[in-house]
């Protein structure tokens, strides 16, 4: 349809109008390559051990071996469910805590006035330049030697501190300067008149934040929430370092466990991979717009 219209307006370049079709073909081919690992994972999750280790590979399982999912779920010492509970606790507590702490700070930087505000905000932005991997060793020490925790004395020795706890997995990554920046950008859009009106109604600044600023900034709150949740769901290195107890470890570390125990039975590993990945895929499919907005927002970070 539209191609026809353009043909009328620009008649001198007919070769262009074969291109849209070629574009689609190229894009579909590319998408097949991109999606292939997922397809292979799904097919693999239904294969028996013989089928998954045959060569040349058997593409389709002879029948749907649902027992792979049952085995994957029941195999770890406390079932995969325990890892799920751990991830859910860590991801939700961490992300909700992050929203609260960052909203408070972002609100102060966007709407309130206080001494040293500009310097303090510059300091927050400055922490974005500190790469997470650099803080690894010292943060491990801080967790391990946290005073008065896990049998430690006030100087932080004698016990294990916050090592092998949920708190160790949750607290260190809880702020994120970039989230403060994103929320502040959104909070600044709210006209100052609203604050005056709220004050005439007898509101204080905290109630104003809770009843006006946050509800008005719902889209960015959802975006920060989703990106935080997915980041925590997919995290590996930090939980790997601050936990040893399998009953406290998150789902991605369960995958490391499967890798050790089921290296010969790819069917079970693929079933576990799929179980661990599906929640994120579903979340993404339903909330795609928010994810994309968040990612584009991160593109403005520089």
């Amino acid at each position: 349809m539209s191609a026809e219209q353009i043909r009328v307006s620009v008649p001198e370049a007919p070769s262009k109008f074969k291109l849209p079709k070629l574009t689609t073909v190229l894009l579909v081919l590319g998408a097949c390559v991109v999606v292939f690992p997922f397809v292979w994972m799904i097919l693999g999750s239904f294969k028996t051990m013989q089928e998954s280790s045959s060569y040349p590979p058997q593409v389709f399982p002879s029948q749907l071996h649902w027992e792979n999912y049952k085995n994957a779920w029941l195999a770890p010492p406390n079932t995969l469910g325990k890892y799920f509970i751990n991830t859910i606790i860590v991801a939700f507590t961490g992300t909700i805590g992050q929203l609260m702490v960052c909203s408070l700070a972002a609100y102060a930087f966007a709407q309130l006035k206080f001494r040293g505000k500009d310097i303090l905000f510059a300091l927050v932005l400055g922490t974005m330049m500190i790469p997470g991997e650099i803080t690894l060793i010292p943060n491990f020490m801080t967790i391990r030697h946290f005073p008065l925790m896990g049998g430690n004395d006030i100087l932080g020795s004698g016990g294990t501190g916050l090592y092998d706890t949920y708190a160790a997995q949750i607290i260190p990554g809880m702020v994120g300067a970039f989230n403060i920046f994103l929320l502040r950008q959104s909070f600044m859009q709210i006209p100052k008149d609203f604050w005056e009106a709220a004050q005439i109604d007898g509101s204080n600044s905290f109630r104003y934040l809770w009843e006006v600023v946050i509800p008005m900034s719902k889209p960015i709150m959802i975006t920060v929430f989703l990106l935080g949740l997915v980041g925590r769901w997919n995290a590996l290195l930090w939980p790997l370092i601050v936990t040893r107890d399998e009953t406290l470890r998150p789902v991605q570390l369960a995958m490391i466990w499967y890798q050790g125990e089921f290296s010969a039975d790819q069917g079970v590993v693929m079933a576990a991979s799929l179980l661990v990945t599906i929640p994120i895929v579903i979340l993404f499919l339903f909330m795609q717009r928010h994810f994309i907005e968040g990612i584009v927002g991160s593109g403005l970070k520089g």
Partner: peptide, 17 residues
């Protein structure tokens, strides 16, 4: 959506495949 999916799901679980 298909092109974006790997970025969202990138993790140890997907690395297994």
């Amino acid at each position: 959506t298909m092109y974006f999916l790997p970025y969202i799901t990138a993790s140890v679980a997907v690395t297994m495949v």
